[in-house]
């Protein structure tokens, strides 16, 4: 089955907007973090799908495979894959920091609801 690039873009937009909706409407900090992770995943899907070419192979040489210049390169573009690898690792780092700050805020306010966090005046 051939998948158009455009279809993949639309799927990634939908996942991105699900993440945006979750980040807007939720009050729980953990749920907001999960929404941010969903947005990250959608962006990674978009970047990878920009490198996709219809009916192409993965950019890994296997036995019996040739890359001949300049006639036919039937692989998908390896550059977005490398960039997404970076993006995933940075996403892990930001998620770790976010979870740390969430733990700290929970210990301070004894709640995860964003709206109730400023209620205690004596803090």
């Amino acid at each position: 089955m051939m998948i158009d690039n455009r279809t993949l873009y639309i799927y990634s937009f939908i996942i991105f907007l699900i993440g945006i909706y979750g980040a807007i409407t939720n009050r729980n900090l953990i749920k907001i973090l999960v929404s941010l992770s969903i947005i990250e995943t959608a962006l990674n899907i978009f970047l990878v799908s920009t490198g996709y070419i219809n009916g192409s192979n993965p950019p890994i040489l296997h036995s019996g495979m040739k890359l001949i210049s300049p006639n036919s390169i039937n692989i998908s573009d390896p550059l977005p894959h490398a960039l997404v690898l970076t993006a995933i690792v940075i996403g892990v780092g930001t998620t770790a920091i976010g979870i740390g700050l969430t733990i700290k805020l929970y210990n301070h306010y004894k709640t995860l609801n964003v709206n109730r966090m400023g209620d205690k005046d004596e803090l």
Binding site: N5, I73, I75, S76, D77, P78, L79
Partner: peptide, 12 residues
């Protein structure tokens, strides 16, 4: 959508 029009063509 053609890899020949991209910079990573030389990387490949």
């Amino acid at each position: 959508s053609d890899i020949k029009n991209r910079v990573s063509y030389f990387h490949s």
